[in-house]
C-alpha cells in the first residue's frame, strides 16, 4: 500500500534520511523505532508532504506522493497524527474533530463522530471545551480522533506516547489496538520500542537515517541485540 524506495531527505544542511526503503501493506501495523534523531519523524513528514525528499520515491497505492502538497496527500486518506499532538488550541474539541473531516474531500463518508466518541469517551464529555485546555493525554486522544474523522486509509502516528503518564499511554495504546483489530493500516513511530513491538506486526529499526534492521515484531523482540540496544534503554531514551 505504501512503498518507500531509497528515500533521502536533506534540510537545514543536515542529512536526515540516507536512502530508506520501507513497505506498509494493507491491514498491517508497521512500527518504526530507533533513537532520538534517527530520522523517524522526518520519514513520516516526507510521506505527509511536510518536508520534500531530495531523492527517492514514495508511492501510495501506486500513486507517487513525493511531489504532492501536504493537503492533497491528506485528502487521499494518508493522515498523520503529528508529534506533540498539534491540536488547534483555540478551537473547541468538537470543532477540532469537525476539521478532521476536511480530509474526506468527498471520498466516502467518514468514521462517524459517535464512533470516535465511543473510542475516546472523554472527547464527548469535553466537547465544548477549548482543545488548548485539555491535558496532554486528552489532546493525544483528540489528535487521533481528528485523524479518524478523515477516514484514514493509512494512519501515520508520530510518537503517540511522548510525554504521557504510563496509565494514559495504556489507554491510548488500547485504542490503537482496537483500531488494529478493525483492520486499520498503521505506520507507528515510537521511541518506546517495547510498546511499538508489542502492537505491531512488523518493524523497522532506524539509526542515523538508515534502516539497520527489519523483520517481524515478535522476532525482533526476541533478538538479543535488539533487546540490549533498544528495549534495555529507558523509554524516554
Amino acid at each position: 500500500m505504501l512503498e518507500i524506495r531509497d528515500l533521502q531527505v536533506h534540510y537545514n544542511g543536515i542529512t536526515a534520511l540516507r536512502g530508506v526503503s520501507l513497505d506498509v501493506n494493507q491491514g498491517e501495523v508497521v512500527a518504526l523505532i530507533g533513537p532520538n534523531g534517527a530520522g523517524k519523524s522526518t520519514l513520516v513528514n516526507a510521506v505527509s508532504g511536510i518536508v520534500s525528499p531530495s531523492a527517492g520515491t514514495i508511492a501510495f497505492e501506486g500513486k507517487p506522493l513525493h511531489s504532492s502538497r501536504a493537503w492533497t496527500i491528506s485528502g487521499m486518506g494518508v493522515l498523520q497524527v503529528p508529534e506533540g499532538r498539534q491540536v488547534f488550541p483555540q478551537l473547541t474539541v468538537t470543532e477540532n474533530l469537525q476539521l478532521g473531516a476536511t480530509a474526506l474531500r468527498g471520498r466516502k463518508a467518514g468514521i462517524p463522530l459517535d464512533e470516535v466518541h465511543a473510542l475516546f469517551p472523554i472527547l464527548r464529555e469535553r466537547a465544548e471545551q477549548l482543545a488548548g485546555s485539555l491535558s496532554g493525554g486528552q489532546q493525544q486522544m483528540l489528535a487521533i480522533g481528528r485523524a479518524l474523522m478523515g477516514s484514514p486509509r493509512l494512519l501515520l502516528l508520530d510518537e503517540p506516547s511522548l510525554g504521557l503518564a504510563p496509565v494514559i499511554i495504556a489507554q491510548v495504546f488500547a485504542a490503537l489496538r482496537t483500531l488494529k483489530e478493525r483492520g486499520m493500516t498503521i505506520l507507528l513511530i515510537e521511541q518506546n520500542a517495547t510498546l511499538a513491538l508489542d502492537l505491531s506486526d512488523r518493524a523497522y529499526i532506524l539509526e542515523q537515517g538508515r534502516v539497520v534492521m527489519s523483520g517481524a515484531s515478535k522476532a525482533l523482540a526476541a533478538d538479543a541485540d535488539v533487546v540490549s540496544h533498544y528495549l534495555g534503554v529507558t523509554p524516554e531514551g
Binding site: 511536510i50 491528506s74 503529528p82 498539534q86 488547534f88 488550541p89 476539521l99 476536511t102 478523515g150
Partner: peptide, 13 residues
Amino acid sequence: TDSERASMLVGIN
C-alpha cells in the same frame, strides 16, 4: 490561525 502545519495535515490548503 492556530497552526498552519496542523491545518495542512487535516487537508486544508
